[in-house]
């Protein structure tokens, strides 16, 4: 069975949602405490939302010193699928696993809404089971979610097809409507929206399923390659 590790920092608050979503899709979820310098034998890692270490200094700034982050970085370098959601995205940018930064939303508004996202590439661990051009309804819930980066980084993201998801109607001022992006290896993805909160019509949308199913496919594909 595919095992997904869900990292928990002091102040994380979406780890149970992420674990529950993973279990609902038939995989095993394992909580990884931030103080442990290992990710064990997981096939994929989710860095969930919340306020890791209270967002002290900057969101994600302290979390990157947690022992587990060295293990997550090593897992990512090794090609392991890693997805950072919301605060997890902020943690991955601060840890240098993804380029750019998340700043306060345009208009200084905390945004809590369900928005439309367009799948821009299927060449990433979060979208490999989706279709380019798909429009997904996914909740967002953040104050510091306006993605920004240098002009050179933006040019590279575009040229290398690394913008994974774009907002159809930009809610926070993110540059180039970017809602999610991947690293050069395409196995590390960060996004502000919460696919784990959109896994059932009872929750208002099940459009997150295709994203999490992509992650599980990428994870099982990798583990069977490693086993062979």
């Amino acid at each position: 069975m595919t095992i997904v590790g869900v990292v928990v920092f002091p102040g994380s608050n979406c780890e149970q949602d992420a674990a529950e979503a993973v279990r609902a899709l038939g995989a095993h979820a394992e909580v990884l405490w931030h103080g442990e310098a290992t990710v064990g034998d997981v096939d994929a890692v989710i860095v969930p939302g919340g306020f890791a270490h209270g967002d002290y200094l900057r969101p994600g700034a302290i979390a990157r010193f947690s022992p587990v982050m060295s293990a997550v970085a090593a897992f990512a370098r090794d090609g392991g699928p890693v997805v950072g959601i919301c605060n997890g995205f902020q943690v991955l940018t601060e840890a240098g696993l993804l380029p750019g930064a998340l700043q306060k939303n345009r208009g200084l508004a905390f945004v809590c809404d369900t928005v439309s996202l367009r799948v821009e590439t299927t060449d990433s661990v979060l979208t490999c089971a989706a279709t380019t051009g798909d429009v997904l309804r996914i909740p967002i819930n953040h104050f510091e979610g306006s993605y920004t980066c240098s002009a050179e980084t933006l040019a590279a993201l575009r040229a290398e097809d690394r913008v994974v998801l774009r907002y159809v109607d930009n809610p926070n001022g993110s540059v180039d409507d970017i809602a999610g992006l991947c690293d050069a290896g395409r196995n590390v993805v960060g996004l502000m929206p919460h696919p784990e909160r959109a896994i059932s019509d009872l929750l208002g949308s099940s459009d997150g399923v295709v994203l999490l199913r992509s992650l599980l496919e990428a994870a099982s594909g990798r583990s069977s390659r490693l086993a062979s």
Partner: peptide
């Protein structure tokens, strides 16, 4: 401080 050119919504408010 935020770099010149980076939007500062707190400052604007």
């Amino acid at each position: 401080s935020l770099r010149p050119g980076v939007a500062d919504p707190q400052g604007q408010t």
